[in-house]
């Protein structure tokens, strides 16, 4: 009972804090590499509070979907963060089938697209079109990787796949590393981060995610920003879980140390993304399939290993 309560406490704390800290770490790393001091780590939280206090303008052509979509998206991602084992500690949750989780992600994307199309602005439309193309390309990568994990561990329940008591995958570092890489590569696409889309610019030639949320303001925008950051922490957290399970020694460690490894891993990934975003150049739109192809390749390799029955 007490441990369950502690789990809930830490889980709620990480749902609230992880998105802000990860976003702050990425921005801080980028600022440092550009020889700036950068905003404080918690700046994202201040931004959210500022946005929440601002007034809101809604286009007169927008229907109820425009404002409902952000709330639906937030609820969706909160549900995903409860179901997906993106932290090594988690409160009780019902079994989460991996197909359910992948298509919950798809559902939150659909509502973002609808909200973008709803106002009838040209920017929203092309942002939605680009996002739809990207999601079409990136879905097989994520799905194939997770299915490879599921096939090796003989279950499609994501919690069961990632549980430390499931020994099918314990001595299988190769598949964990490949799936972790596939998830991180596809999450860069999914979250419209650097080689695909520059989250800091509002140049019409390049933006994807920013174009879709251009019409949102005030509290609506605050919800969308937080949803996006939470989705980022869930995806990065999932890849951290994959990477840490690649080391067979981690499986037998006490829970508290695993939790610490998770937090350190999340911060490391955030810093790595920051470094990568400072070094990388945004890809031409036509070359993006070549980037996504690498994510699919990692998943294909993982699937091959799953077919071969696991490789040590």
């Amino acid at each position: 009972m007490i441990t369950e309560l502690i789990h809930w406490l830490f889980f709620l704390l990480s749902v609230l804090l992880a998105p802000i800290v990860i976003l702050g770490t990425i921005r801080k790393t980028k600022a440092r590499l550009q020889a700036r001091r950068g905003a404080p780590i918690l700046q994202a939280a201040f931004d959210l509070i500022r946005l929440a206090q601002k007034g809101e303008t809604v286009s007169s052509t927008a229907s109820w979907i425009f404002r409902a979509a952000s709330t639906i998206g937030l609820c969706n991602v909160l549900l995903i963060s409860w179901l997906v084992p993106w932290l090594s500690f988690a409160p009780w949750a019902p079994p989460a089938d991996l197909f359910l989780v992948v298509y919950l992600f798809a559902m939150s994307r659909i509502f973002t697209l609808l909200a973008a199309l709803d106002t009838g602005s040209a920017f929203g439309a092309f942002g939605a079109s680009r996002e739809a193309t990207l999601s079409l390309l990136v879905e097989p990568a994520a799905l194939l990787g997770l299915v490879a994990l599921g096939a090796t561990s003989r279950t499609s329940d994501l919690r069961e796949i990632f549980s430390f008591t499931n020994t099918h995958l314990q001595m299988n570092p190769a598949i964990w590393l490949l799936v972790g890489t596939a998830i991180i590569l596809s999450s860069l696409v999914e979250l419209s981060r650097m080689p695909i889309d520059d989250p800091t610019t509002h140049l019409e030639l390049t933006m994807v995610h920013e174009a879709m949320i251009l019409e949102a303001s005030g509290r609506n925008l605050a919800i969308i920003e937080f949803t996006h950051a939470l989705r980022m922490s869930v995806l990065f957290g999932l890849s951290v879980q994959c990477f840490m399970r690649a080391a067979p020694a981690v499986w037998k460690l006490p829970e508290i140390i695993q939790a610490m490894i998770t937090i350190i891993g999340l911060l490391t990934i955030a810093m790595a993304v920051g470094v990568f975003e400072s070094l990388a150049v945004k890809l031409q739109w036509r070359r993006i399939p070549e980037f996504i192809a690498y994510a699919i390749t990692m998943s294909l390799l993982a699937a091959l290993i799953a077919v071969a029955g696991g490789i040590v």
Partner: peptide, 11 residues
Amino acid sequence: APPIAMHSSIL
């Protein structure tokens, strides 16, 4: 296309 070629080489 190179991406497709890469996938076929994995196959």
